[in-house]
């Protein structure tokens, strides 16, 4: 048992119950349906922007990309234009591959010795795969939810929904993304618990967002497939929020408020947590700079003069010895030894 994930799990359950009880027993629909969502959104936007601005306030004094391939040097040596970019286009490509395909996580190659000393290579990319599924499923789920905030629902969203529901089973049709998200988030959690070295480094703040997302996914799936939430009422509520004319339809249940509250918590928590890697990945100087460090002078805004040991000081200290050894000097020694030179 580990206090880090137990505490996180309990927190998420309690949060859900607060919203459920708050709306179903105490009748705080206004708080959970209007006030908190608005607040959360404000905190998210303001927090996110503040965090990014805070990063941006610190300069990048040196051009220090981590180079992961051949540099551009001599014209006849092919350079790694993406893994070690030397142009802005290359940097954009590198960032795109990193952000869209998780290039670095894909780098885990694993060798194995088979009988004798023969080498073979194996695919070892579970982390990469789970991370990719998790992020893309999450992205799809978020985009899919835009239909609650847009009237009429734009065509691309409808297309997305039909792609997402390509399995065409169940009623309402099963959307892959929700389940993929849940499966991936569970995998990421189990990985944290069962791989000792990952468990060792994991903090409560690593488990908490996982449980939060799990809670959101589970409550969402429940609403869609089991309790069959009144979608029309929900949309009335969300459209009310987006048009700043909030309404609270009676037919929206506690499960929805629980779901909605967890989403609000996630939004508000986001800027203060590691989830800010969403913004940070764009700001990482080891990835977003071209390896042109010797080609174009990079300016350090706080570069200040330092005390150096000048050649003059050096020669003053060693002049006699330098002359004796036949090394050229700037100033001839004062007396005595000068004839020794030449």
């Amino acid at each position: 048992m580990n206090v880090n994930y137990i505490a996180s799990l309990i927190t998420v359950v309690v949060l859900f119950l607060i919203a459920y009880v708050g709306t179903q027993v105490v009748g705080l629909q206004v708080l959970f349906g209007i006030v908190i969502p608005y607040l959360a959104l404000v905190v998210f936007l303001a927090g996110f922007i503040a965090r990014v601005l805070n990063w941006a306030r610190s300069p990048v004094p040196f051009r220090i990309p981590t180079t992961c391939g051949q540099q551009k040097s001599l014209p006849w040596i092919p350079s790694a234009t993406v893994d070690n970019p030397s142009t802005t286009g290359g940097v954009i490509a590198r960032m795109a591959v990193e952000i869209l395909l998780f290039r670095s996580l894909f780098r885990n190659t694993k060798a194995r010795l088979k009988g004798g000393e023969r080498l073979s290579y194996e695919w070892e990319k579970w982390l990469w795969l789970a991370a990719l599924i998790f992020h893309y499923a999450f992205f799809t789920v978020i985009v899919r939810h835009f239909r609650f905030f847009l009237e009429p629902v734009p065509a691309p969203l409808k297309w997305l929904q039909s792609v997402d529901g390509f399995l065409q089973i169940g009623l309402p049709g099963v959307l892959i993304s929700g389940f993929a998200l849940l499966a991936a988030v569970i995998f990421l959690f189990l990985r944290r618990v069962f791989i000792p070295q990952v468990r060792y480094i994991s903090l409560a703040s690593d488990y908490f967002p996982l449980f939060l997302i799990m809670g959101i996914a589970v409550s969402g799936i429940f609403m869609r497939y089991i309790t069959k939430v009144d979608v029309v009422s929900v949309k009335a509520l969300t459209m009310g929020l987006i048009t700043f004319k909030p309404v609270l339809p009676e037919t929206v249940g506690g499960l929805f408020y629980g779901h909605f509250f967890l989403v609000s918590v996630l939004l508000a928590y986001f800027p203060f947590s590691k989830l800010m890697h969403l913004g940070g990945i764009f700001m990482s100087p080891t990835r977003n700079l071209a390896n042109t460090s010797r080609e174009i002078r990079h300016i350090n805004p706080w570069n200040y003069p330092v005390k150096v040991h000048t050649y003059e000081e050096y020669e003053d200290e060693f002049r006699e010895k330098m002359v004796e050894a036949g090394l050229p000097v700037e100033k001839e020694p004062a007396t005595g030894t000068s004839q020794e030179k030449e």
Binding site: P59, V198, D206, P285
Partner: peptide, 23 residues
């Protein structure tokens, strides 16, 4: 140093402890 180096500031904030570097 947080004020002088974006690297330091960003690297303090964004690690998700995925464990890819661990071994």
């Amino acid at each position: 140093r947080l004020d002088r180096f974006r690297t330091f500031k960003v690297f303090m904030d964004i690690c998700v402890r995925c464990g890819a570097c661990a071994d």
